[in-house]
Amino acid sequence: MPDTITREEICQPENMIYCRTPLLTDAPLSYCPGCGHGTAHRLIMEVIEEMNLQADTIGVAPVGCSVLAYDFLDIDMQQAAHGRAPAVATGIKRLMPDKFVFTYQGDGDLAAIGTGETIHACNRGENITIFFVNNGIYGMTGGQMAPTTLPNMKTATSPFGRDVQTMGYPLKITELIAMLPGTYFVSRQSVHTPANVRKAKKAIEKAISYQKLNKGLSFVEIVSNCNSGWKMTPLESNKWMEENMFSFFPLGDIKVPK
């Protein structure tokens, strides 16, 4: 009896335990190598697939690196003006209350130009889900300072580091919206290690489930890297993120249902 098995024998469809969800399109992602956006996209679409929600989902893409998210996600989507995704999602959800409606936004979109729309959608308790990818920089436009750029962090528009005396402090918008009565579930995760990916997926599952139960607004922040903007390799950027971002933006659930 042979003690070995060939690669070909293992790589059979019946033995497959993990593959890219078919709810991601074949289009190559436009993100830089190692960027967390790709993983965040994948997790959301895995959950939509597992919960059989493709036909019920309407997504809203922001302005920023993920402006072209609709090229990669095989669901009906709308592209919103910069920062306005929560208002767009409000319009959709109010008129299509049976649909699963989510926004996918970066830090500039959600926490700078769209602060008003974010806070008021949260405060109204809109029954939508917001996915917030925070990498502390404007990646799409070439690495400028974001509302979540850390103190002393260098960017294209703070080349000597963010001076909080003149440029203000990074905004902890997730803690801020967690204080509002309209938010039901608020969590901060990351997708840079296998364990964090698993936790992030659980948070995404919860956020989507709560919308199905009409519980109000669920909000999942994903602290992520921007190796191009931070001028590091992907592995270096994840290490820098662990050492610098997580102390300011600690991971974990911020608001959970009582």
Binding site: I10, R20, G36, R198
Partner: peptide
């Protein structure tokens, strides 16, 4: 077949297969 690599791959480029050796043999 722990799938760690596939979990962190941003581009979904990795497919993972696994067999329980004794059973499959």
């Amino acid at each position: 077949g722990c799938i760690n690599c596939a979990l962190v791959c941003p581009d979904g480029a990795i497919t993972v297969y696994r067999v329980k050796l004794n059973e499959s043999l």
